[in-house]
Design a protein around this nucleic acid. Structure first.
Lengths: 316, 316
DNA sequence: CCAGCGTTGTAGCGTGGCTACATGGATCTG
DNA sequence: CAGATCCATGTAGCCACGCTACAACGCTGG
């Protein structure tokens, strides 16, 4: 009984994505192929692994057990590949990095360029995605590094069982139309103005709300943006004040006043996660990108604090 | 890059057996198939894994690294199967036990019968083999349990990186033709008689020699046996004295006097080894056989001491 | 230097996995 | 409550991969 890795990857993907169709999409095959592989794996394992539930499927207890082991096995395979690269001290190959939008341009793009310049055989690929999708893609080896964020006082994404590499802290800034002239840096002084915020389902939107509550008022949110560029434009148009992380302040349009938020001080932590490597080494190519991420200086105009200390050390 | 388990098993086998042909034999395929799989694996890994050396091949450094990881991966796969069986508390399947000759009949056969009687879905298969071959077959998953021996003062087989389960200690006995009448139990009193010993390359043969040296004399070894039955027949024929472990004394022919060796006291330890399971559980079927091995009472006439204590505990 | 062993290439066959399509069950909607 | 939709699973057929059998080649030991 030999439990092919290919099949185990299928099971893992079904467990991760919650269905045959989603797993098939992630694996770039048809649902039929996934279904057949699952059936074959169940035959080999001796127990049914999934059972139908409504429109979809759920894992049986055997399926859950095997899925957990599958992730370990896939990890062991990855460690073998890493072992080969480490033995040859070769920084080469493709590293796929997923990042939430505002860090993708400000942090990941320069880090990718820096890493590729330093290592000619290294190929870094960046993809912009929301945190949760990055996390899933990381676990299913679509990505090698996920750059995630965690706002103060807002529950972050679950990163247990993933390796965490701090990159930077990014304090919130208060932006107001220049014409207002109310530049105290204190949130409480802006309780009576209209607000611009990120969408309610985003951690930034939740963070804004929480910060206002800390300052003792309920913000009158008139406009909702997804992209920080729109937030800036709305503020530039005089339609309200907003709270944005420093990294979003690379290209501030005219008519916007920026100041650090001094009361209450709040912000977000930016960090990278990788698949757990146990007690083994990090793949040299991934280590090179993590290094570049830790060392990149955010573009002028941002107020982000680097956290290079310890990151390079943590990688080896 | 996905490194199929099947291929990794091929590499592992080549590393273990030291050649393509030997690995092919162990895997029940032709050498050509092994060679092709190896070439394919090298292509996937990105490095050559073997290089020709004289008539055979040796692993490159990359090959060695990958072989080590291969064993871990194969272990992880086995732990997955074990996890399924444990989750269903099902003592079923085939357990292959390899044993050195004298324990195979005295210990393993009754243990196998006992285990199969207790668990109807359990299939135990016994094969007699020398320690070193059992060890190799255990590591390449041809066997699930290897029953090995270790004589006092004789270097035993390397069992590092294998899980060890003590079964019994087996003290040496002095056997002499009945007619001699020299029954002191002391080796030193038999310095001037002819001897029968096991072949020089066997640990028992070496043990006999060492015991005589401890007693201060060089034995005059006239006859060499492989099987203890022949040893007994030679002694029964009056051709010499011999030193044999208690377990070999199940069917003592007429004309042989048996007494425990009291000076010097020496013997062998009998133990089972299994593939390392890390911090995971033992497969229920294997645990059942280990349990039976620990609990079996050696047939009447032997002088073996059971070591049941702690074995059952160690298994869970 | 030849015989033999061991590994590697090549042709051909069989197995197995994939796609495309069809089927069947469950949920949502008008 | 029926039709639409979504999701998983069977079926047929094609393609790719791995195996065997056979041949060739290199090294070693007598």
């Amino acid at each position: 009984m030999d439990l092919d890795v290919r099949r185990l990857r299928v099971l893992h993907e079904v467990a991760l994505r919650g269905g045959v169709t989603a797993a098939a999409a992630a694996l770039h095959v048809t649902p039929s192929a996934v279904s057949q592989q699952l059936a074959q794996l169940a035959r080999e394992a001796g127990y049914p692994l999934v059972e139908r539930s409504g429109r979809g499927v759920v894992l049986t207890s055997a399926g859950q057990v095997l899925a957990v082991h599958a992730e370990r096995i896939l990890g062991a395979v990855e460690q073998a590949v890493t072992g080969l690269a480490v033995a040859h001290r070769r920084v080469a190959g493709t590293v796929r990095v997923g990042s939430f939008p505002s860090a993708a341009g400000a942090l990941v793009a320069p880090a990718a360029a820096r890493a590729m310049a330093a290592h000619p055989d290294l190929d870094v690929r960046v993809s912009e995605a929301e945190d949760e999708q990055s996390r899933l893609d990381l676990r299913s080896a679509v990505l090698d590094i996920a750059v995630l964020q965690e706002y103060d006082h807002v529950p972050g994404i679950a990163t247990a069982e993933l390796d965490r590499h701090p990159i930077a802290t990014d304090p919130m800034h208060l932006i107001t139309p220049s014409g207002w002239g109310r530049h105290t840096g204190r949130l409480g002084d802006l309780a009576d103005v209209p607000w611009v915020a990120s969408a309610a389902y985003t951690p930034c939107g939740r963070s804004t709300l929480h910060a206002c509550h800390l300052a003792g008022f309920e913000p009158d949110i008139r406009h909702r943006a997804i992209d920080f560029a729109l937030t800036l434009d709305l503020v530039a148009a005089g339609l309200g004040a907003a709270l944005v992380p420093g990294m979003a302040l690379r290209n501030v349009p005219a008519g916007v006043h920026v100041e650090p938020l001094v009361r209450p001080v709040t912000g977000r932590r930016i960090f990278a996660v990788t698949r757990p490597r146990g007690d083994g080494p990090v793949h040299p190519a991934i280590a090179a990108v993590l290094d570049a991420l830790a060392q990149v200086r955010p573009p002028a105009g941002t107020q982000t604090t680097r956290l290079a200390a310890g990151v390079a050390a943590a990688m080896r």
